[in-house]
Design a binder for these strands. Sequence first.
RNA 1: GGAGAGGUGGCCGAGUGGCCGAAGGCAACGGUUUGCUAAACCGUCGUAGGGGCAAAACCUCUACCGAGGGUUCAAAUCCCUCCCUCUCCGCCA
Length: 432
Amino acid sequence: MHDLRYLRDHLDTLRAQLGPRGADIAWDDLRNSLEDRRNLTIKIEQTRHEIKKFSDEIGRLMREKKAADAEKLQETQGMRTMVPEIGAQEEQLRAIEQQVSNVALRIPNLPHSSVPVGSDSSGNKEERRWGEPQQFSFKPKTHWEIGENLGILDFDRAAKIAGARFAVLTGAGARLERALINYMLDLHTTQHGYREVLPPLLVNRSSMTATGQLPKFEEDLFRLRDEDYFLIPTAEVPVTNLHRDETLAENALPIRYTAYTPCFRREAGSYGKDTKGLIRLHQFNKVELVSFAKPDQSYEELERLTSHAEAILQDLGLPYRVVTLCTGDMGFSAAKTYDIEVWLPSQNHYREISSCSNFEGFQARRANIRYKGTGGKKDTKSEFVHTLNGSGLAVGRTVVAILERYQQPDGSVTIPEVLRQYMGGMERISKA
RNA sequence: GGAGAGGUGGCCGAGUGGCCGAAGGCAACGGUUUGCUAAACCGUCGUAGGGGCAAAACCUCUACCGAGGGUUCAAAUCCCUCCCUCUCCGCCA
């Protein structure tokens, strides 16, 4: 969310800066609501001041046992009329504030100046590539063909148990997924300085609003029928909310967390896309990186966080590229996003496997996460932190990339060196 | 699920209708004292929003005692709803 005072004073500027990103926002309503809100607030505060003044006076008289005088004051100063009046005004103010936040909470973040302008993914900018897509002496199979042939992926039974867009992993497949999770967590905690978190997978409405999933994207979320809980679509939600309504010590920043969680997404509106395989599921595993940084260091932190995700792919020997999302392709809350795309031989192109974003103060303002200087330096004012996060990595898609990249002519798959210690020394997945 | 207790400033804790944004203590910060450390003493010590101001300092107003409503001229204090924590019982991995 944007600062409301800033909104009031710079509404047209922001509107212009957002361009198409703000096309569906009711700007004029917002402008009026903000103006009404300000005027009414001033009026209410003045009236309240009057009431308070005479109340104090009545209190003084009562203490002096001058009940009659107090009674008189009560009648003569219009207290009896001011009170209902202020009640009505407050009700009006509540309605206005509701209107304000209805609109304000749906305004997306402003892209950073380094973000390329564009309307869709064709406007994204490639930053760098790592590794060479390998040449196969045979036609590479898709990961679901490989997995089903090896007996480690089972989509038919997943559909029976749950439905479309679910998967069952068995045997070495399940073990590979688990190995990846452990390997990623170990690397981030021991080499990259992140603290491991195992958070709740169900969160409340406030948490979802703080990180920006609500109110605009409720249809993307799974929600419980009888309780106002949502299944997390990413660990970003519970982990960023760890510090909701907190003021952090400046010298503790940056604070870095990594969390493995399953993620749950409705995938409404993606019918027909990636219907086969592990690419797009209602439930998938992800290791997430989250950072709380000082504003003047957050872009440096974004580079660092992105490199931590890249390190996984490099270790696994999976070719990838990094792209900067253009204005039209970025998410709602982000100010800048790098997507890391891994090479998938069967599709003959790069597919997203990680998305690393700086949200600047957008989430922090919604979540009320501040930081403040410590050590008695006189009143350093608290400010909003910048929040960042990125996948490090999406585990299911990593399995996809490994199966396809390391498939052999005989249908077996060799296991990347770094994972072998996590798989009991297994070097190859062959048909059982 | 049943019964009970409770949520007050960074922490502890007083406060049952008006002089309470809130006693007292601890911690923190500044200072005095002091071979050093410690102690003692003095002082400062919440957050947010609005207005004044070009702005800072500063002045001033408003709000905040878990959240939201209500009663009242006046609410930390009374009433209602909700959330959370703790204890006991039941159930359960």
